[in-house]
Every structure is written in structure tokens, then in C-alpha cells.
Design a protein around this nucleic acid. Structure first.
Lengths: 121, 121
DNA sequence: ACATCATATTCCTATATGGGAATGCGTCAA
DNA sequence: TTGACGCATTCCCATATAGGAATATGATGT
């Protein structure tokens, strides 16, 4: 009954930013509050699609809205991206040369332990 | 003719890690090289699905393989995640208190400029 | 050659999008 | 009130998965 082809995009920030356009929107909003029309212009996308992307970003908390007359001003809420930052940061050492060397050593050790008699406690 | 419902998952790291299971795989591999069987056990997922996820991760360069007898040892290649780290890092200031304050000021300034006579250049 | 283990691939299916087009709706100007 | 403007929502459709099941491929042991 349940197939769940893919986690709903609205589920978490990871999925939300998997879409290039949405990242682009956040990039623009990093420059400050913007009405939808400006985002439409900046992205060169149709207005409805932009609104739809904004909705997804809103649902994961990456953006917030404020009504101003007939316009809606969107602004970034970067904190919603923190989980992503926290997660990838855990891998930062692997591409940082200095730590990369250390990791090499650690992995060698680990390999030896798993290979030899590494079934302690 | 072209609908392109969503960028192919194999396109970039962002899409690859949008899937929780794949993040989990990378987390396990962060502990060192592992044969598929161990990943299957660690994830509690069927073997074919794990192999499929590994394929995606391979295609974006997040993991590399090494044949050892009838087993295939996968290892992490964190460098493929650097683009993600670079991108989110650009937003780090927005949730870091110290910078958050500064951003507030900058945004106020920006709002004023755009509000007043900001159509120069 | 044959059985078995470890993985990868293929087929099938329900579901989740993303864009395009049309439409709904609240706000502001006359 | 009427009309235009700014945005959100809905309908439609092609496409991309993710998982389940079955099968193919490769290496190892006897």
C-alpha cells in the first residue's frame, strides 16, 4: 500500500535545497527581503513556479513572509539550513589536507583491527 | 515535450544526499571502508536497494569502490560533499548570533536604500 | 562443472515532483 | 463598484524515483 517513491520534498531542508532554483532563491534572499516579483525576475522563471518553490521553502522554514500591501516580502531564515551545515561539517575533515592525512592513518588502523582480531569488548 | 519533473538524482551531490538512507550510508562509511553486506545490516534495508543507493553515491563521486575477492569494499570520498559545505557555509552567519546582529543592521540599511532612492547605476 | 556467496541490474508500480496554463483572491487606484 | 496588480492555488502531464521481487553476474570452494 505504501510505496513512498521519495521522501516528500517538504519533509526537510535537505530535500528543499536539492532543487537548484530553490537554492537560487535563497541566494537572492541572502541579499535581503524581496517581493515575489523580484524573485521572478531574478530567476527568469514563471511567477507560479516561483510561488510554488517559495511554498516549499516556507514549509521547511527556510524563508518567512511578511505582508506589505498587495506584495508579500520574503526573507531568509538561514537557521533552517543549520542541520545541513552540521551534517556536512562532519565530513569536512575528509577533504581538508591536514585532517585527510590523519584520517588515512585512522582508517589504516581501523582496517587492521577489523582484519585481525578486532572483536574486543 | 520536456517536463523534467525533477533534476536527476544522479546530477549532483545535493540531490544524492537528499535521501536519508544515502546520508546514513555515508555516515557509516565515515567509519571506514565497508563491504555492501555490512551496509545492508547497518541500514536494515534490502540488499538491492542498498546497491542502488550506492550506485547513486558512486555517480556523484561520494563513494569509491575496491574489489576484494567476491566482495566490494566501499569507501567515502567526502570531497564530493564540498560543494554542499561551501554553499551552506555562506549562510552560517545567519544563525550565528554574533553575525546575526550584524546582518540585522545590514538588512536595515539595505531596506532603507531600496526604499528610498535606490535606483542608481 | 556445480553449488554458493556477494553484489548488481532489471522489471514493475505507486508516488512525488516541476513546469505550463488557467484561475482564485486580496489589495490598491479611480 | 470596477479594473488592474501581485501572488497563491489548482489542474494536467511527463518524468524521476524508491522499494519489492526476481534475475543476472562474478568469484570461490570442492
Amino acid at each position: 500500500m505504501f510505496a513512498m517513491a521519495r521522501a516528500a520534498t517538504t519533509t526537510d531542508a535537505f530535500n528543499a535545497v536539492a532543487e537548484p532554483r530553490r537554492r537560487q532563491i535563497l541566494d537572492v534572499l541572502a541579499g535581503g527581503e524581496r517581493p515575489v516579483s523580484e524573485l521572478v525576475e531574478a530567476l527568469g522563471l514563471a511567477q507560479p513556479q516561483v510561488s510554488k518553490h517559495l511554498r516549499v521553502l516556507r514549509e521547511v522554514g527556510a524563508v518567512e513572509v511578511r505582508d506589505e500591501g498587495r506584495r508579500r516580502l520574503y526573507r531568509l531564515n538561514g537557521e533552517a539550513l543549520k542541520p545541513i551545515h552540521d551534517w556536512v561539517s562532519g565530513f569536512e575533515r575528509t577533504w581538508t589536507e591536514r585532517f585527510g592525512l590523519l584520517d588515512g592513518v585512522l582508517e589504516d588502523l581501523e582496517r587492521q583491527e577489523r582484519g585481525a582480531g578486532g572483536d574486543d569488548g
